[in-house]
């Protein structure tokens, strides 16, 4: 418990900044929607006829003229990219920062088993992802209510759930990687999140890259798919959670026996 609270304390500023930034952008997107809506007829057509650019962001299958279509694309990208970066950075720094900042020696010469250390750190990372998503959802939903917009609540909540699961998966996989890394964790985390994001864009553009949906968690966050199905793709989500479990298991296994520098 001591270490768990310590981790949260250490990360409180980073969590506050990321949460505030994402929530602000989400609220801003919602607030400008009514203004956008009036120009939407033209804009919707324009956005729908930009070829592969349109496909990349799923704008061929979502109606940009409705709140849901707009929300899935605009807000989806904000929480999608912002949340993914936060999750990847927080996850990948969790174990690596101790060795990078030379605090590992201090921490690991206390009578706390490595299993407990890993568990407390993982719990702290997941707690932060939960807090970020709860605040962002509250801010976003609150602004929709305040703006008195006609929202498809089920789909909006499903979308938030999907991005939350994406962040959990990313945070978990990066946490597993963290056990192997000493320095340079920031770049690795950001790069990893970006690669997965672009994989999804490529998957959307070309059918030949359809298999990428089994790799990138952004695939199960696809707004168009969620709206079409009225649910998340259980298989893809399950696969993602599977990747996370494997990465965590390997990370645990390695960190329990590694030599600490």
């Amino acid at each position: 418990m001591t270490l768990y609270l310590h981790e949260l304390r250490q990360n409180r500023i980073s969590l506050a900044v990321w949460t505030a930034a994402i929530a602000l952008f989400m609220v801003a997107c919602v607030v400008i929607y009514p203004e956008m809506e009036t120009d939407m007829e033209e804009m919707g057509e324009m956005f729908a006829s930009m070829g592969s650019f349109t496909a990349a962001f799923g704008m061929d299958r979502l109606n940009f003229g409705t709140l849901m279509g707009y929300y899935a694309i605009e807000c989806g990208n904000v929480i999608g990219i912002g949340g993914a970066f936060f999750a990847a950075l927080t996850g990948i720094a969790a174990l690596a920062k101790e060795e990078k900042d030379h605090t590992a020696e201090f921490l690991l010469t206390h009578p706390v088993s490595r299993t407990k250390i890993i568990s407390a750190k993982l719990a702290a990372v997941m707690t932060q992802v939960i807090v970020l998503n709860a605040v962002v959802l509250a801010a976003s939903a609150g602004s929709i209510v305040l703006m008195d917009l006609d929202a498809e609540w089920k789909n909006i909540l499903l979308m938030h759930l999907a991005y939350f699961l994406l962040q959990i998966e990313l945070a978990g996989v990066c946490f597993g990687l963290s056990a192997f890394i000493r320095g340079g964790s920031l770049g690795a985390g950001l790069g990893f999140a970006l690669v997965l994001y672009f994989m999804n864009l490529i998957k959307n553009i070309t059918d030949e890259a359809e298999f990428l949906k089994y790799v990138t968690p952004f695939a199960y966050c696809d707004g168009a798919d969620i709206v079409d199905a009225g649910s998340l793709d259980g298989m893809l989500v399950g696969l993602g959670m599977g990747y996370m479990t494997v990465a965590l298991a390997i990370g645990f296994w390695w960190y329990r026996r590694k030599d600490i520098a």
């Binding site: 001591t2 310590h6 250490q10 900042d101 201090f106 010469t109 206390h110 009578p111 706390v112």
Partner: peptide
Amino acid sequence: YLPSEAVFYRGMKVREVLKFSAGLRG
């Protein structure tokens, strides 16, 4: 254990470090 190079977490006060260390020992 007293390490040759003492490094602590940034932003913490001496009192907090000592409390954290004791806390890890319960």
